[in-house]
Computed example of a mutant assay.
Amino acid sequence: MTEADDRVEVASEPRPVAVGVDGSAESLAAVEWAGAHAVSHDVPLWIVCARRKPLGAADGQEPWPQEQLHAAHRLAAGLYPSLKITEDAVCESPVKALMSVASEAGLLVLGSRGLGTVEGFVLGSVGLSVIAHTRRPVVAVRGRMPAGAAAETGPVVAGIDPHDRHADVLDFAFRTASAQRRTLRVAHAWSVRALYSYPSALPEPRMTAQAGRQAQQALEETLQPWRERFPDVTTEIWTEGAAVAPYLLQVASDATLLTIGRRPRGHPFPTRIGPVAHALLHHSPRPIALIPHA
């Protein structure tokens, strides 16, 4: 085998689904979700736990968080016996650890409210900073999915603007829906105020209906090539003149996953992720996939 062949073989290896754990219930819920996603896409699961080594501390003064890793490994192996699982303890600050892991993984999964003893691993500004700046898809999982229809048959929802960059969002959403054999619901909220020169003016029903038809047509045209690429995926189009975040929360009320786009930041600070993504991360009980785009 030539050197070029070696490069091709290595490049073709599937990237794992990585999940950060800290011993909290939220991070274990993330392990469950990440394991299911890895199984459906036939890729390995990579469980990672990090701790910040105190400045000047001698080796052995602070134990590695092996208990959290082993607990997460046992959970994933029990749920998905055929899944290839690796675990990794990283001696690094949480943000740097997660950013490094995300660069090597195909997808990074985080619990949205980590409350464990490993300082800030998936908690607050650390998780938001990683979401804002990594150029890999990140899924935030708030908690375990409830038993019932949403967990078993809930759709994948993709929130897009057909006039903005959306290819990466639709690619992730279609692939996920296809792998999990779920319906894909594509949603778009358009502003009725954009129809008027004066923001305080009330929309006329005729113009509102016309805008709705235009939005529907734009989404139909946007989805046509994706429907041809993924003929096994049943798609639905939802559109309405409404505020974006509340509308997406409504559309995804029965979803197994809500997928949206985001623009990565070039500098570690500030950790702005946009008002819609911020609102959804704080209010959606469903897992949210944030897909970077330029």
Rank of each mutant, 00 (worst) to 15 (best):
A132F: 10
R74G: 02
A71N: 15
Q217K: 10
V17Y: 00
E119I: 05
R51Q: 13
T259M: 13
G60V: 14
V233R: 11
A34S: 06
V251Q: 04
L108I: 03
R262Q: 10
I260H: 03
R15D: 06
A209Y: 07
P63S: 04
L75M: 01
R262V: 09
D171L: 10
R7Q: 12
H166N: 10
I288W: 08
R142T: 12
D59A: 14
A255H: 03
G23Q: 00
G120C: 10
P54R: 04
L170C: 05
G111W: 00
V118E: 02
G111P: 08
A177P: 01
T183L: 12
D254S: 12
R227K: 13
C91D: 15
D59R: 12
A147D: 15
S191H: 03
T256M: 10
L184Q: 04
H267F: 13
V101E: 07
I160W: 00
T86Y: 13
P246L: 08
L184S: 05
A58S: 11
A102S: 15
H163R: 15
A158P: 05
L79P: 02
E221H: 07
E62K: 10
L249A: 15
L110E: 05
T2I: 00
A38C: 01
Q66H: 06
T153Q: 12
P65Y: 05
R51M: 05
G78L: 03
A58I: 13
A105W: 07
P199S: 07
A36N: 01
G266Y: 05
T256C: 12
F172I: 01
I85E: 06
T234F: 07
A211Y: 09
Y196G: 06
L107A: 04
A4E: 14
Q214H: 07
R74I: 06
A215V: 07
G116P: 04
S27W: 09
A255T: 04
L69Q: 01
V244C: 00
D164A: 14
I273V: 15
G261T: 07
V48A: 05
P264M: 14
R185M: 14
T86V: 09
G106Q: 01
G266R: 11
G154N: 00
A151E: 03
G159K: 00
H293I: 06
E92P: 00
